[in-house]
Amino acid sequence: MAKIIRRERLVPNLHLLEIEAPQVARKCKPGQFVIIMPDERGERIPLNIADWDSEKGTVTSVFLVVGTSTQKLSILRSGDEVPVYVGPLGKPAEIKKYGTVLCAGGCYGIGAVYPVARAMKKAGNKVISLIDVKANYLLYWEDKLKAVSDEFFVSSRDSYYDCKEFIPKVLKEVVKTTKIDRVISYGCTYLMYTCSEVTRPLGIKTIVSLNPIMLDGTGMCGACRVSIDKKTKFACVDGPDFDGHLVDWQELFSRRKSYFDDEIQSLCYWEKENFPKS
């Protein structure tokens, strides 16, 4: 059992979850993830580690509410417990002095990319952060990210911030004027895919954090298999970070939809149990 220290809504549909897990906090590295099971009947789902405090012994994730498991997580309160919280899993992100590193994040990836940006900065890189939100009120952790970035851009569809284009277009502009040595893209699959397509012709190494469906997260089941350079890899042990130019994106998109009908059924069942006759 792991105790919830804090669960709060950051912006509509995105929540922060801080969990007491001293052993995990002691070992966290940027780019790793945890597996959490919201209750005894729940699914084991992976969440990136967005921050941690090894002294306090807590680990933080940011999650988007999409289905039953994340719905269940979104109603937890501090003091509640979850039956499974295991990590840190996966290979840490490769942190080195590359020169100029561009971190592109959207959705839960704004949180997930933060520790990578922080470590890249600490390793002596110039860090450019490129954040994408649908509207101004969906931006979170602006201060945190600014503190570890040399340059900070936000694109939002309502043109409230620097520009209204979707991130890849912005990325295209930035690479025209600035020499980028490495791109890190975290967040929804579509964002990671389109960022990789922008940098592919330019040959800029682009690292993405893949999010296939997982089960154990320890290399035992093969649920998380992805094709990298035409070879099958297990994202939970060989990744989740991979070279975005080598990923078979169509396969990932379709495999992520494996249980589409079941997920809707599951959510309806849960809503009926919890909000009868509403």
Partner: peptide, 13 residues
């Protein structure tokens, strides 16, 4: 382990 037999009572399909 995840009791998909009892889906949707259990969440794993």
């Amino acid at each position: 382990l995840m009791r998909a037999v009892d889906f949707p009572e259990y969440d794993t399909p």
